[in-house]
Computed example of a mutant assay.
Amino acid sequence: MKILSLVFPVLLFCTAVQAQGTVSNYAYRRFIPSGCDVRDMAIGDLNGDQLTDLVLVLQSKKKDPAASRTLVILVDDPQHRWSLAASNSHLILPNDIGGAMGDPYGRITLDRGCITIEQSYGSREKTRLETTFCYVPAKKDWVLYKEVTTREDALNADAAKTTVLQGKQLRPISIKDYTGQH
């Protein structure tokens, strides 16, 4: 247990350095409910205020593969106090629908106020999802910007099909209200 308590801060520091930001204020932990672990974390300026913000993927400590996982967005203020900007427990797919590919969750990437969540599932027939939400200052919210879906069949790789929905093809839905692909 002591080793784990030493490893987590080191991993957190490495993640922060890799993301070209720092997380010196561990106060964000108060946003992690008891019974949950941080599955993933991404660090960057999500709202254009030049401060380091966090995106967390939380999951239950219990080994229930069907348990939902929650995406949490925390923003920092000039006094380095975290506040909850958004959360969604429908965006990250549960562990049990990955099929032969295992856990469908891939990763989160941040780029200039946009959050992209990569997930995939299936076995012979595979589906890869990339869902991007971008910050809209007038709404003070992250709104669905793009959905990229790639479907492929391992027996017919040439038949892979990628569908990109963007702009007017999508409803301007908040990251808080998103429940799945359109």
Rank of each mutant, 00 (worst) to 15 (best):
V57N: 00
Q169I: 05
V7N: 03
D49T: 04
F31T: 12
I108K: 06
V17G: 06
D49F: 06
R171S: 13
V136W: 02
P104T: 09
S123R: 12
Q166R: 13
N95T: 14
D53K: 00
S24H: 11
T15L: 09
L110K: 01
I108E: 00
R171A: 15
D177T: 13
M101T: 10
Y135N: 01
W82S: 09
L93W: 11
V23M: 06
D64I: 14
I175P: 00
Q181D: 13
L165E: 07
D96F: 09
L46Y: 08
R81H: 15
L51V: 04
P65V: 03
G167Y: 07
V75Y: 07
H80F: 04
T116G: 02
R39G: 04
T150C: 03
L170Y: 08
L84C: 08
R112D: 11
N47K: 01
R151Q: 07
Q166H: 13
Q119M: 12
I108T: 09
R30F: 04
Q166C: 12
Y135A: 06
Q50Y: 01
M101I: 04
E130R: 13
L12I: 06
K61C: 07
L51K: 03
R29K: 14
K146D: 02
H182G: 15
K62V: 14
A159E: 10
C14P: 08
R30M: 05
N156H: 02
Q119E: 14
I43G: 05
R124N: 12
S120E: 12
T149K: 03
N47I: 05
T150S: 08
L74F: 09
R30I: 08
G106E: 05
R69D: 09
T131G: 00
V38E: 03
P137T: 07
A85N: 01
V17D: 04
K61R: 11
Y145V: 00
T15D: 10
P172E: 14
T163K: 10
H90T: 15
A138H: 10
N25I: 06
G122Q: 10
I175Y: 05
L74H: 01
S24I: 03
P172F: 11
G35A: 09
S34W: 07
D158Y: 04
T116M: 02
Y178L: 03
T150K: 06
S120Q: 15
T179Y: 11
D158M: 10
D111F: 12
Q50E: 06
T162C: 01
L170I: 04
S87K: 15
T116P: 08
F31Q: 09
K61T: 10
C36Q: 14
Q20G: 01
I97C: 08
K140F: 09
V164I: 15
S123N: 13
D111Q: 12
T109W: 00
K168H: 01
M1T: 14
K146E: 15
I3F: 11
Q119T: 11
Y145I: 04
N156L: 02
M1Y: 11
D49Q: 02
I115T: 06
D76P: 07
D77S: 13
D103L: 03
I32S: 01
V164G: 04
S34L: 11
A19S: 14
Q79S: 13
V148T: 07
